[in-house]
Amino acid sequence: MSATEAASQAAAPHEAGRDYFASLARWKVWEILFWATLAGCYFFPDIDRMLMSRVIIWGLFAMSLDVLLGYRGIPSLGHAVFFGVGAYVAGFLGKFGWTEPISGLFFAMFVAGALGLVMGKLVQRVTGVGLLMVTLGLNLIVFDFVLRSTELTGGDDGLQGIVIAPVLNYFRFDIWGRTAFWYAFVVAFVLFVVTRMLLKSPFGLALIGARENPRRMLTLGAPVEGDVSRAFMIAAALAGAAGALLTQTTQTAAPTYLSFQRSADVLVILIIGGAGRLYGGFIGAIVFILLQDYVSALSPVYWYFWIGLLLVIIVSFFRKGLLPSVEQLYDRLRSRKSAGPPG
């Protein structure tokens, strides 16, 4: 480092620090483009709007897992349980007369979040394979319960007779998915913005710190175990919102919503997109759901061959997922450009 460089950095270190965190919090151009493009999909001729709203819902679901896995570093093999609980809570409300969707969504988030808090308290000391097993086991327990409580949940057939009132008492859910698309988009976007703020806050930084080195966080006096249950609660509430959205936009809730298969799928989606990036879930959902729609139309049986192959390739060669790999490539290209002769 040259002497003048060092001097200039020493002169205004405070400004540099403030600028650094300000730039972390600032919305980037590509972020705005991303959301604008997603919204713009609606106006695309011939687009399947129901499919697009499913992409958005899965994106939100995968983002919820990202809070847990990407930011706090806790893997879960049972994340679908929160999705399913949100879906069924929204379904029950609609079935038994509370048809207003937005309050139903909040209530579903609340119930799923409470379950997440309890689950987080249970597992906050468990790590490694034990953690994978406990989350998987709890998922299976709830799945089994829903499947067997035929009188309550309709068992295998799913919940029947769900009625959802128009959004804001005006926008009716139609078969073309017009309301479904905008409802899913707006809810997902609002929850994304809130999650983004939460993760750019001191709490988000503390989550990353605990992911990187939980023992060191303890010696800084941080409530590391308490953060586990909080992260679980937030992730669960977001997953519950995704589940409620799916129920409300399709007026169905089925046991497959909380199957192990779904837990595995959401993990795959997040890993495809890349964990710890906030957008990884949405990117992964776009790739996964659109690919699923395309491949399944050709040969539904072999869909899992391709998704399995994709998974193997990603963990073998792009360990961090698509989004970070693209970022790396971009950084490398940019540094090559700027690394020319000094002039």
């Binding site: 595995a264 049986v301 869909w303 899992y304 061959f305 998704i307 399995g308 193997v312 963990v315 073998s316």
Partner: peptide, 11 residues
């Protein structure tokens, strides 16, 4: 990795 292989084996 291994669940990916399981998926492939099923197909």
């Amino acid at each position: 990795l291994t669940i990916g292989l399981v998926f492939m084996s099923i197909a």
